[in-house]
């Protein structure tokens, strides 16, 4: 079993996201520690990209802040290595194809394994382009997470069939960001996924409240929250760890008891 899968072993998983280096790498390190203490089951670490086409304004702005602050892929690898010294919670990177491609796919995968990364999410690498990335990450025991969207329809089985780790189910149309409601027939999509695989399904995009997170976790196996947390970091800046911890605690509790 991959380490990612262990995040779902005790029941529904709460998966928070943070943009690394926003506003500084030290802030991110403190935020991640506080997420772990607050009960996060798996943490998504965003490597900022200059032009994140799948993100809404909140994560776009965080990416801009982080890059302006001088964060680089190498500095983020170093941070993960420091966190891994005493944290066992699974980590997945979330970034864009060019960040990995430009670093060198094999070189990125090797370094990611070395520092203790367990999964990778690339929102601009669909099923059709997976083969360019998948073998290197598989060889380094990193799960290349597959994404399924409300528009996937006849593609669901193909994508889900050999998806490692967990499946990232995009809750609704559009880019990342808080939504007031989610109307997609997620139950139907989860049922289709279940026909071909047992890997856990976590729902992301638009989730911000404990109620919605609990509902999503109930429909699937976990909830992913990004923009709502990045917003807190944006508001609190270098002191964000405490407030993020409080938020993650409430969300994780709702998800775990769903």
């Amino acid at each position: 079993m991959s380490k990612i899968a262990t995040a779902f072993e005790k029941g529904n998983a709460f998966i928070p996201f943070v943009t690394c280096g926003d506003p500084t790498i030290e802030t991110t390190e403190a935020v991640v520690r506080s997420m772990v203490a607050a009960g996060a089951d798996l943490i998504e670490l965003g490597i900022p990209f200059s032009d994140p086409t799948a993100e809404g304004p909140v994560i776009q702005e965080a990416s801009t802040r982080a890059l302006a602050g001088g964060v680089t892929t190498d500095k983020i690898f170093d941070m993960v290595a420091r966190l891994r010294a005493d944290i066992d919670t699974p980590f997945a990177f979330m970034t864009y194809a060019n960040v990995v491609f430009s670093y060198g796919i094999e070189r990125f995968a090797a370094r990611a394994e070395e520092v203790g990364i367990d999964g990778l999410i690339l929102p601009d690498v669909p099923f059709e382009e997976r083969e360019e990335f998948a073998p290197a990450f598989a060889a380094h025991r990193i799960d290349l997470i597959a994404m399924i969207a409300p528009t996937s329809e006849d593609r669901i089985a193909m994508i889900a069939k050999e998806a490692p780790g967990f499946i990232y189910l995009v809750s609704s149309l559009g880019v990342t960001g808080v939504r007031s409601q989610i109307t997609t027939d997620l139950e139907g999509i989860v049922a289709t996924i279940r026909k071909v695989t047992d890997v856990p399904v976590a729902v992301g995009f638009g989730i911000s409240t404990p109620d919605v997170a609990a509902h999503m976790a109930h429909l699937a196996d976990g909830a992913i929250v990004g923009s709502a947390i990045v917003k807190i970091v944006g508001a609190e800046g270098a002191q964000a760890a405490g407030a993020v911890g409080d938020y993650v605690r409430a969300m994780a509790e709702a998800v775990h008891t769903a």
């Binding site: 086409t53 799948a54 194809a97 929102p123 601009d124 690498v125 669909p126 099923f127 059709e128 382009e129 994404m147 399924i148 969207a149 409300p150 528009t151 996937s152 329809e153 006849d154 593609r155 994508i159 995009v170 149309l173 559009g174």
Partner: peptide, 21 residues
């Protein structure tokens, strides 16, 4: 057939848009 010009091209798009493409 895969929409490539040598090594270039391809379809590096979010899953949400794949059926539209």
């Amino acid at each position: 057939p895969e929409g490539r010009f040598g090594i270039h091209g391809g379809q590096y798009m979010p899953e949400t848009l794949m059926n539209a493409v």
